[in-house]
Structures are given as structure tokens and as C-alpha cells.
């Protein structure tokens, strides 16, 4: 049964990935490998091939920004953080998510 549930929710998870990324970025300045590591053990486990295009879209939408930082090993990396607009958007998403959760709980009563 678990496979069918994960399948059923695959589109939802895909849609929620943006939310999950905004959450991670809201916590601290992170670079892509950090994000992938944070997500690896979760339902939102993803890959560079998906993440880079998503981050570029979030940046175009003005929700995140990045800065280059030197790293101890290897070339400089892009560290992402939320913009003010991103912070506001994340708050909206949080509210909406809570509403959905509340609705789902309500419906069962």
C-alpha cells in the first residue's frame, strides 16, 4: 500500500518542493549540497537536476537571492537566502498550508 500512497502524492510532493526549499533557505544561508543533504532522508528527496532549475526560478521570482562565498575545499559556492519578498511569500504559504491541514482535520469530524 505504501507505494500507491507515495505515487498518489507524487504530484503533491512535487508541488510542495518549492515550499520545502523556501523553508530550508529561511533557516540559514545554505548551498545546494546542504539542501540536498537536508532533504535526502525526507519525502522531498531530490536531485541537482531538479533543484538548480527550481532555484533559478525562485530567484527570478525574487523569492531567494544568493551570494558567492569562498569554501575551504574547492571553488566558491552560491549560498542562498530568502529575500523580504520570499519571507512574506513563505508566511503566506505557511498560512495556506495550515488552512488546508485544518480543513482536512475538520472534514473528518
Amino acid at each position: 500500500m505504501t507505494t500507491s500512497i507515495t505515487e498518489k502524492f507524487s504530484a503533491i510532493r512535487k508541488g510542495l518542493l518549492e515550499f520545502a526549499i523556501l523553508r530550508i533557505v529561511a533557516g540559514d544561508k545554505v548551498y545546494v549540497a546542504d539542501m540536498l543533504a537536508r532533504l535526502r532522508a525526507t519525502e522531498f528527496a531530490t536531485q541537482e537536476g531538479t533543484l538548480y532549475p527550481l532555484l533559478s526560478k525562485l530567484r527570478r521570482d525574487g523569492l531567494v537571492e544568493y551570494e558567492w562565498r569562498e569554501s575551504d575545499a574547492g571553488p566558491p559556492r552560491k549560498y542562498y537566502q530568502l529575500t523580504a519578498k520570499g519571507r512574506a511569500h513563505l508566511a503566506e504559504l505557511d498560512d495556506y498550508w495550515k488552512t488546508i491541514n485544518a480543513t482536512l482535520t475538520e472534514l473528518g469530524r
Binding site: 512535487k14 508541488g15 518542493l17 518549492e18 531530490t46 536531485q47 541537482e48 537536476g49 531538479t50 538548480y52 532549475p53 527550481l54 526560478k57
Partner: peptide, 12 residues
Amino acid sequence: EEMGPVAEPPGA
């Protein structure tokens, strides 16, 4: 394999 196929995010 680790990189995964490149896909446009939904809504882009």
C-alpha cells in the same frame, strides 16, 4: 544518476 534528469519546475 545522482544528478537526476533536469526538469523545469512546475509553474515556470
